[in-house]
Design a protein around this nucleic acid. Structure first.
Lengths: 206, 206
DNA sequence: ATACAAACATACATGAATGATTGTAAATAT
DNA sequence: ATATTTACAATCATTCATGTATGTTTGTAT
């Protein structure tokens, strides 16, 4: 009962979708490959065909998140922008809106932030997550550096401090929202939070 | 080789200390009771004598964190305070300083925030963490409510939105710091962040 | 002095998850 | 038309952690 290439690609997607659900429900280490297979309507054999092990399923899931605003930010980094802080503000608010409406991305985000166990000697999977976070931070830092060179950074702030503070807020926002079972309006809180922090970072007009 | 009561209490503490280390290094579900026992210099028998199972070790660890400023906040809640927002600001900055210098509490915090797997149908352990977080939120909310009734809440903010925003920032700060391997100065970032958000929440003097 | 219980260590039984191997039917290349 | 992969399913051996049960030694009460 061999399937055509499209069929195979389909089962691969179904496995990933099932993995997202099961990981989300039981945590990564609480999810056996058998559970995922059953949810996907296949056997473990199928999973082992498409992926090396559970870690590879996780990284495959992770590589599925590609927020559209990343291109926006990349473009600004390449071509420059006359108001980088406003760009950060707008892009971040956009991300909040997107995440608030995309259940699949919420699940993946929850798995990454809350469901992946911390290790001091990180597994390659955990390492990838840390790396992705670091890349995000670098972009943030470069944009704020642009703002600084344009004289728009408020006194007292350094580029690094500002970038870290903003990153903490955003990750904290999503983590708390997902951890609490979406018990508060992310969009409201997120918009106010973003504007507050950006407002503090931005040098006030004299 | 029965020990005296003091000896027994000592091994209990040693088991907890070892558990904090092992959990921190390998994650909760990646830590077998045997590993913890070896680290503590005992056998699993000793652990099973003092605790029912791994979950009970975790909750025992969790109950070890009692930040001193909780009493400060409780006192303010009971007796009122003429400037609750300043109280939040000071207490939070104090917490940052304490956490920055207490490795044991850092480990426990890391385990709770990063190392405890998320479950939609939460285990009792996870539930305790969520509950503790909710209690913290309630106190925050009551303090901000006090500020609101004193006319000190900036327009645009609601009590809930402000409390959530602040909570997200603080948890995000610690989570990012620990996840990143303490790669940035928490105290600097934390102080600026706290002052920024509280500054945004507080109504400006006319 | 003796009986009992506390504080463990040791040994064992169980189950769950993994990874590897093998089987196999259909798709595709030749 | 045949050979060869592909895309899985099914089975198996092994590991590993857990929980329990039992053994052993020593404090402690009487």
């Amino acid at each position: 009962m061999r399937r055509t290439k499209e069929d195979a690609a389909k089962t691969r997607e179904e496995v990933l979708a099932a993995a997202a659900e099961v990981f989300f429900e039981n945590g990564v280490s609480g999810s056996s490959l058998d559970k995922i297979a059953r949810r996907a309507g296949v056997t473990r054999g199928a999973i082992y065909w498409h992926f090396k092990d559970k870690a590879e399923v996780l990284t495959a899931l992770h590589s599925e998140i590609r927020l559209p605003q990343e291109e926006l930010v990349d473009h600004a980094l390449e071509h420059g922008h006359d108001d980088p802080l406003s760009l950060i503000e707008q892009a971040s608010i956009e991300v909040v809106h997107i995440l608030a409406n995309d259940e699949q991305q919420q699940r993946i985000f929850a798995i990454m932030i809350l469901g992946c166990e911390f290790t001091e000697d990180p597994s390659e999977t955990a390492q990838r997550i840390i790396t992705a976070n670091a890349e995000m931070y670098e972009k943030l830092q470069k944009l704020i550096d642009m703002a600084d060179r344009q004289g728009n950074l408020a006194p007292g702030w350094t580029v690094d401090t500002a970038a870290r503070a903003f990153q903490c807020c955003m990750n904290g926002l999503f983590a708390e929202w997902l951890r609490s079972g979406k018990s508060f309006p992310v969009i409201d809180v997120g918009e106010r939070l973003v504007r507050s922090v950006i407002g503090s970072i931005r040098r006030k007009a004299a």
